Amino acid sequence: MQLKIEESAFATTDLSRTSTLTQTSNDRFDKRIAFQLYNRQKECREKLHNSFTHFFSSGYQKLVLKLLEENAGVDLPNFPSFSIIERLYRAEQNKFRKPCEELIESYTEYSKKVLIKMLQIEERVFTLNHYYMDTVNKIKKKYQEYNDSIELNVSGLSNEHQAALDVQIAMSAYCRVVEKRIVDQVSQLCYYWFITRCALVLDSKLSSAFTSATLFEWMREPFNQQQKRENLKKSINAMERALAMGQNA
Rank of each mutant, 00 (worst) to 15 (best):
E6G: 01
S8C: 06
F10E: 05
A11M: 07
S19D: 04
T20D: 03
T22C: 06
Q23M: 04
N26M: 14
F29Q: 04
F29M: 04
R32N: 13
I33T: 07
N39W: 01
E43R: 12
R45L: 05
K47P: 00
L48F: 00
L48K: 00
T53A: 02
H54S: 00
F55S: 01
S58K: 11
G59E: 14
Y60A: 00
Q61L: 07
E70T: 07
D75A: 12
F82V: 12
F82T: 10
S83Y: 08
I84F: 05
I84G: 01
R87W: 01
E92Y: 00
N94W: 00
F96Q: 01
L103P: 00
I104L: 09
E105D: 10
S106K: 01
Y107N: 10
E109L: 04
E109N: 04
E109G: 03
Y110F: 11
K113I: 03
L115K: 02
L115A: 11
I116Y: 05
M118S: 02
L119V: 04
E122C: 09
E123I: 02
V125T: 07
L128I: 10
N129V: 05
Y131S: 08
Y132M: 13
N137R: 10
K138H: 11
Y143G: 08
Q144S: 07
E145S: 12
N147R: 13
S149L: 10
N153D: 15
L157V: 02
E160N: 12
A163N: 12
A164S: 14
D166P: 07
V167S: 08
M171N: 10
S172I: 11
A173Q: 03
Y174N: 04
C175M: 11
R176H: 13
E179R: 11
V183Q: 09
D184R: 12
V186M: 02
S187I: 02
L189N: 03
L189D: 03
Y191D: 14
Y192C: 05
Y192N: 14
R197G: 01
C198Y: 11
A199C: 06
A199N: 10
V201T: 04
L202Y: 08
S204G: 13
L206K: 09
S207F: 09
S208P: 02
A209F: 13
F210E: 11
T211C: 09
A213E: 15
T214Q: 15
L215S: 02
F216R: 14
R220H: 10
N224V: 14
K228C: 09
E230Y: 05
N231D: 12
L232K: 12
K233T: 03
K233C: 05
S235I: 04
A238W: 01
A238Y: 01
L243A: 15
M245V: 06
M245K: 13
Q247E: 13
